[in-house]
Amino acid sequence: MLSRVADSLYWMSRYLERAEHTARLLAVKLETTVEQTREEADSSWARVVAALSSQNEAPSDTDVPAIAQHLAIDRDSDNSLLSSLSFARDNARQVREQLSVEVWENLNRLYLRLRETGVLEQRNNALFFRETLQDLHALEGVTYSTLSHGEGWYFLELGHYIERAQLVCRLLDLHFGAAKQTEPKYLDWLVLLKFCSAFEPYCKAYTAAIRPDKIAEFLLFDPEFPHSVRFSIDRICDALAHVAPGAPPGRRASVERLAGRLKAMADFTQIEELMASGTIARFLADIAAQCEEIHAAVYSAYITYGAETVL
C-alpha cells in the first residue's frame, strides 16, 4: 500500500474517533447538567473543556451554551467537533477510491449537516449531539461491513485505537491523575462512566456500586469492553501485526517491540498497585507517551522513512 494512502486512512480514523469522543462527552454532559448544583456543574464542565481542548486554547467562557458552541462547531478551533469531522473528510477525500461509496457518503453527509448548523439551539443541544453520535456509530458500522479488511482497514483500526487509548487516558487523568483539580463527587463518577459508554457494562461487571478504584480498573484493564485502554491496546497490536506485510523484519520489529511492551504493561499491571502506591498518574502518562512512541515508530518505519534507508 502506498504510504500516502496509509497516512490518510490513519488520520481519517483518528479524527473520526476524536469527533465521536467530543460528541459523546457533550451529549452526556448536557444530559446530566440538570441534575447538578451550579458549583458542581461548573467543575464538571471544566473537566469536559480540559478533556477536549488543547491547553492553550481552552475557552474562557463559563456560559454553558457558549462552551458547547465552541467545542462543537467553532471552525477556528482545531479541536471542535466540526473541525475533527472536516479533517477526517479531507483525509477521506484524498483516498476516495479506497473507500466504499457508503463510507464516503455517510461521512460527507454528516459533515455537511454539521457545517450547516450555525448556532446551536439551546433546548435541543443534547439531542443534537446524540444524533451526531448515532451517525458516527453508523459510519463505523458501514466502514466495518463495506470495506475489505486488508491493510488499509488495519490502518483505520490503528488510528482509531491509538486515538481512543489516549483520549481515555486523558479522561482518567482528569479524575485520578495529575490533571485532577477538584475531587470528583458521586455524580462525576457516574458521568465519567457515561463519557466512555461504560455505565451499563460497568454495572454488569461490578454492580451499581460506584467505586473509583473499580471504575479505574474497568476503564483501564477490562479485556472485553471496547472503550477500555487494554482493549484498545489489543486492537493496536492486532493492527500492527497486519500492516506493511512486505516490510523487512527489522523494520517491523522496531514497531512491534514497542507494542509488545505496551501490551505487557496493560496485561500485567494490577489496579491495586496503582491505587496503593499512588502511581496512577505516572502510569497514565506512560501509556499516553507509549502510544505517541508507537505512532512515531509507525511513521518512521512505514510512512516517512528516509528513502535511503530502504535501498
Binding site: S3, P245, G246, P248, A307, L311
Partner: peptide, 23 residues
C-alpha cells in the same frame, strides 16, 4: 497502482513508489 507525483521518487535514474513495505 494509482500514484500521484508525491508518491514517487527517483534514485540513480530508477523510479520508485513509496509504500508501507518499502520502495
Amino acid at each position: 497502482e494509482l500514484v500521484e507525483g508525491r508518491d514517487l521518487l527517483v534514485n540513480d535514474n530508477v523510479v520508485y513508489a513509496r509504500t508501507t513495505s518499502g520502495l
